[in-house]
Design a protein around this nucleic acid. Structure first.
Lengths: 365, 365
DNA sequence: TTGAAAGCGCTAACAT
DNA sequence: ATGTTAGCGCTTTCAA
């Protein structure tokens, strides 16, 4: 790789000053035609590509937004790496079943990310993507934060103190319900209403009364969903469980254990209301494998509306989040904050849509 | 937003020099404990986030890779924007059918991009994403090129001269068969073999002889696929068509026109071998709507292996590209070139897998 | 219309 | 172990 040409090289070759070169790129119309052509010719001949780093430095802003995400499917990364090792052309043909793939992609984060991408493009921003989940996640997020004008993060990916720290420097939006009311912007959905109306449906339409809530209450969103669940039960005069039942984190093996345990104790409820689609999908699979017929013997529902739920058998009843829209809203807020840095942080709550499919007992559609 | 603190601020507050601050961040273990703590405390108190721009400038490399992609579904962007306008919480509930969604996402580029993301993370690189399709695409790609150490592009998204230009500065890999043999690296698949073996299957297993190839020969990959198609026909003693039949670019309306025309002329072939899944899907839909029964009356096949083909009815027979792996290979090459800038450009060809599903006449699986 | 010069925030020798 | 000092490549007043 030859040394990268700079403004100086171009200036010298075009016989002008670096200021003129810079100016020519910024406002071509404000330069004499002859100089412009000379500069452009020189730039072209040299293979000049302006350094966005230097530009960003000089201007104080980079023109890029950042998205920090997370591999919620920890196991998958490892599997993917194994696959990656046989990447030569002469390697064994890779046999990943497409059904299998759908469990890994696209997930919730992927669809939100897509929204972010689309809106970034529309606004003329570049998008810097980073992800953690592993050890030095904190370093990574700081690294990204250092190269963008605004940052979006999925909840639970970055310690809140780190986020606050970053938020002192650039606008940050977190994709969750506002929990610790602070300097962060938020984009979220109406978790409570969504879960309440889903649960209400199970009770009134399908006559289910013994309902388990499956999922960890480790995020404000999950807690809101649990709240919606309890609220619907209470409204129906059913005493809601105090705590969720054991979550399996979307992992098949764990789901199998949970199901085996339940079966052994003869404690199968009327339905499992899961905090996410992934949780529900893993559970459904474990139930099926254990010989439980869905949804006849037990109903299962999810939350998110990911593709895999649409393709599963039975098709998964769920609460769909407007993921692309959420991604767009994120960018919208960030750009807005950039323009008006002194506005207080904003929280945007988007509506959800309950999608009745087969896994709750509704007929196929 | 308060003024962003810099090394100078931290240094002053910690009572050390800026070099020490920098060093403390780079090699915390090489600094006296007391100073380290002082610096970290100051940084924390100030909300200091190092500027990756300045760092990149000073170091001569950014630690980021770039991916420039493209909206192959031109119409969709517009539709998405319309949706984006009703982004307030009080807006009408958004009703996008999930089936509809799958036609837009995830597509080929999305799955490849995912591979790029995963591998970037594994290697500790940040990923800068940009996309064009609209007017100032050239500016966008230059912008991205200016902020990364290496760039990946999908074919047909950037004029080859621009690519060459950029390749003089940083390593570039194009996701296509090497066409113009130049300074670019390439990642591609065995298009010829894939299409040949798919076509061979149609001929020998299903006895189809009158086959149309659908798609534009506007890329080296597409030409290779056409070549594979012809080669299989020739091997079977069938005279291959000289040119493909009219492509519809994956657009429903156009597909409907093409089908209507064919039907009118009574010129329905035994099968349509489409250059991509999107092409095939649009065609299948048009055929179904026109009352043609698939695959009994006519077979349809695709190429790529996108999710939508798996979910379509009948399920689409196709040639699956190892998209995630391709994305990973891209990063692999880029990182390699970065380490050894003087190596000649590399081309990596990955194997494909023919997936027999229903649309060619095979039984459901 | 163009040039000179002062940074932007950080790193990396080299000194101490 | 820490400080000094040049830049890195570009933008941007301010002059000319």
């Amino acid at each position: 790789m030859p040394k990268r040409p700079t403004v100086y090289d171009v200036a010298e070759r075009a016989g002008v000053s670096i200021a003129t070169v810079s100016f020519t790129f910024r406002r071509p119309d404000k330069v004499k035609v002859s100089t412009r052509e000379a500069v452009q010719a020189a730039a072209h001949a040299l293979g000049y590509v302006p350094s966005a780093n230097a530009r960003g430095l000089a201007r104080g802003r980079t023109g890029a937004l950042g998205l920090y995400s997370f591999d919620y499917l920890l196991g998958s990364t490892e599997a993917a790496c194994r696959v990656a090792d046989r990447r030569r052309a002469d390697a064994t043909v890779v046999r990943l079943d497409v059904n299998e793939d759908l469990r890994l992609f696209p997930l919730y984060v992927d669809e939100v990310q897509r929204g972010v991408e689309l809106e970034c493009r529309r606004r003329g921003y570049a998008l810097m993507i980073g992800a953690g989940g592993d050890a030095n996640g904190e370093a990574v997020v700081a690294d990204i934060a250092g190269r963008v004008d605004g940052l979006a993060v999925f909840p639970g990916t970055v310690p809140v103190e780190v986020l606050r720290h970053i938020a002192r420097r650039i606008p940050v939006v977190e994709l969750s319900e506002p929990s610790h009311d602070d300097s962060l912007n938020h984009v979220t959905v109406d978790n409570v209403a969504g879960m309440r109306s889903l649960t209400h449906h199970l009770i009134t339409e399908h006559g289910l009364r013994d309902l388990n809530f499956v999922g960890a209450l480790d995020s404000s969103d999950n807690r809101a969903r649990f709240k919606g669940f309890r609220s619907a039960l209470r409204a129906a005069g059913i005493r809601p469980p105090r705590a969720p039942s054991a979550p399996c984190g979307g992992q098949r093996e764990r789901a199998a254990v949970v199901v085996g345990d339940l079966l052994e104790r003869g404690a199968l409820p009327d339905g499992f209301v899961c905090v996410t689609d992934q949780e529900a999908l893993a559970l459904m699979e474990a139930l099926s494998e254990a010989g439980v017929e869905l949804p006849r013997e037990v109903a299962v529902t999810g939350f998110d509306g990911i593709v895999a739920g649409r393709v599963a058998r039975p098709q998964l009843t769920t609460v769909r989040q407007p993921m692309e829209l959420m991604g767009r809203a994120v960018v919208d807020i960030l750009v807005d904050r950039l323009a008006r840095p002194d506005e207080p942080p904003e929280s945007r709550q988007l509506p959800v849509q309950v999608v009745f499919r087969e896994s709750c007992g509704c007929p196929p559609r």
